[in-house]
Computed example of a mutant assay.
Amino acid sequence: MKPRFKAMLAAVFLLAGCGQTNALAPKEVTMMNADGDKVGKATFSQAAKGVKIHLEVQGLTTGPHGLHIHEFGSCESPDFTSAGNHFNPDKKDHGLMNAKGAHAGDLPNIEADADGRAVVDLEATNVTLEEGKKNSLVGRNGTALIIQEREDDGMSQPAGDSGKRVACGIIQKKKEPKPPES
């Protein structure tokens, strides 16, 4: 292959890759408690088999906490019920240990240390950041990441008996800035 053709081919692949990266750019999510205080952040990044989530949160009680993606991009205090139910586009039963499958929004429990901090990396395999897909986290008005007060038992319907919602963050596509008016 001629060097000039190689350079042109490399530029095409680079530009194609840039378009894909921008379309699926990582989503930064601010996690808030019921008082409206920032308690952490989550970063959602498209992966080969779903979405990678990096979560750093503080202000939790020590021990395990349920973690779920909910169907609406809304985090109204004090109880975050505006986020709706677990994200479940395939209409499955709840629970990662459920033989019939789990909600797309069911995630592993997280563990807060003695200082109330949790830092975790996990992958949600039944969701995407691609718009236009039924399992997209950023479609319509987005979705929400919710931390529960107790651990999810992995089976109980409809939400794992994990108690109150104690922290919430909205997952949505990046809002483009409006151009200045003339």
Rank of each mutant, 00 (worst) to 15 (best):
M1I: 04
P3L: 10
R4E: 08
F5H: 14
K6S: 13
A7V: 13
A7R: 07
A7K: 15
A10F: 15
V12K: 07
V12Y: 09
A16Y: 09
G19K: 08
T21S: 14
A23T: 14
V29I: 06
G36W: 00
K38W: 01
K41D: 12
A42M: 09
A42F: 00
T43V: 13
F44V: 07
S45A: 11
S45R: 04
Q46Y: 11
A47T: 10
K49N: 15
V51E: 10
L55P: 07
E56V: 05
Q58M: 12
L60P: 00
P64G: 07
H68K: 14
H68V: 05
H70E: 03
S74D: 12
C75W: 00
S77D: 12
P78L: 08
T81L: 14
T81E: 12
S82P: 00
A83W: 07
G84D: 03
G84H: 07
K92L: 15
M97S: 15
N98R: 06
N98T: 05
D106V: 14
L107P: 10
I110T: 01
I110Y: 01
G116K: 04
R117Q: 13
D121N: 15
L122Y: 08
A124M: 08
A124I: 10
A124D: 14
T125A: 10
V127I: 09
T128E: 09
T128I: 05
E130S: 12
K133A: 14
V138M: 04
V138Y: 09
R140V: 09
R150T: 09
G154W: 03
M155C: 12
A159V: 11
G160F: 03
A167Y: 06
G169L: 03
I170M: 01
I171T: 04
K174S: 10
P179K: 08
E181T: 13
S182K: 08
S182Q: 06
S182C: 01
